[in-house]
Design a protein around this nucleic acid. Structure first.
Length: 302
DNA sequence: AAACCATACAACCGCATTACC
DNA sequence: AGGTAATGCGGTTGTATGGTT
């Protein structure tokens, strides 16, 4: 007996989401809030499995998601957090609240891994040339290995410390509730779903007539699903009009109000790491030089 | 212009974990 | 306490897009 599928595969649509589907999903979540994903497909008429709906929401439509190029600071944080935490993308993403774990994972796989690979290749080359011995990793003494591991941890810690204390503005933006509970993220900081959808629609309208036709035809098929609940169809049409006029403050306000609570609820579990960092920082101090050297080396490499 | 290749990223899959009864 | 459903997470795949030949 294998694991039962999360949804019966027959009649379940797969592949890229259409703007219509996005709007239907956002409209529904706007009304009912995220959660109870099992009920979403049946209640919205979307021909998607609950998992797909949840993923689409968390990775793409959810308010507060920042898209586009990663900043240098974000990149550094990812590199160091990855060194510290490994491929625990969700944990890493919790320190970059505007990025999704999927986004970070993709960025790591496509950009950073390559980048670091190059650096390491270059580095090992120079070590081989300059460093005596020429023996492989077996020859590396336990002490050396431990020292290197410790360096890695130190570097990661330092990066976290830097990130946490970069400047008050930055850290407040990164950790809005934990570090500054009284501060509410500015509406401009957190893009709303409406903005995401509006942007999406903008891109969509830029597409070629052919792809428009494809989307239109695919939307027809989803309209079949919608026909079972005409009221929701009307709702999404109304919402579409609202989204198209990107200055529909009332919709955005509603979204903000609705999602602020969720954002607060889903803030990162910082305390453990913070505690660790602060305790360690207090206990440390004497081996700062060692860490500085390591950091400088990393900075040179990057 | 067309074929091919590389890249980026959205989405899916399946296992792990958590919540609820 | 045990079973089941719901959700979270990381790895992987599929596809669109842009660049090169």
């Amino acid at each position: 007996m294998g694991r039962p599928p999360c949804c019966d595969k027959i009649g379940v649509k797969k592949g890229p989401w259409t703007p219509e589907e996005d709007i239907i999903l956002v409209s529904y979540i706007q009304e009912h809030g995220p959660g109870n994903w099992r009920a979403v497909p049946s209640n919205t008429g979307l021909l998607r499995c609950s998992k797909s709906c949840r993923l689409r929401w968390t990775n793409y439509l959810r308010p507060g998601i920042k898209r586009g190029n990663f900043t240098e600071h974000e990149e550094k944080m990812i590199i160091h957090l990855q060194a510290l935490l490994g491929n625990r993308w969700a944990a890493i993403a919790s320190y970059l609240p505007q990025r999704t774990d999927n986004d970070i994972k993709n960025y790591w796989n496509t950009h950073l891994r390559k980048k670091l690979g190059k650096i390491q290749g270059h580095n090992s080359e120079s070590i081989e040339n300059g460093g005596g011995g020429g023996k492989d990793s077996e020859s590396v003494s336990k002490g050396k290995w431990e020292r290197r591991l410790q360096t890695d941890i130190h570097m990661a810690k330092q990066a976290l410390c830097e990130a946490l204390s970069l400047d008050k503005f930055d850290s407040a933006a990164l950790f809005p509730t934990k570090t500054a509970p009284e501060m509410k993220p500015a509406p401009s900081t957190y893009a709303s779903s409406a903005e995401n959808i509006a942007r999406l629609l903008q891109n969509w309208t830029k597409k070629s007539p052919k792809s428009m036709g494809d989307v239109a035809s695919s939307s027809e098929s989803s309209a079949v699903g919608l026909s079972s609940s005409p009221s929701e169809g009307a709702m999404s049409t109304a919402t579409l009009a609202g989204f198209n006029s990107s200055n529909s403050d009332s919709v955005e306000d509603q979204l903000e109000a609705k999602f602020d609570r969720n954002c607060v609820e889903t803030e990162m579990p910082l305390s453990l790491l913070e505690k660790w960092l602060f305790e360690d920082a207090a206990a440390q101090g004497h081996d700062g030089d060692f860490m500085e050297i390591a950091l400088r080396e990393t900075a040179d490499l990057l």
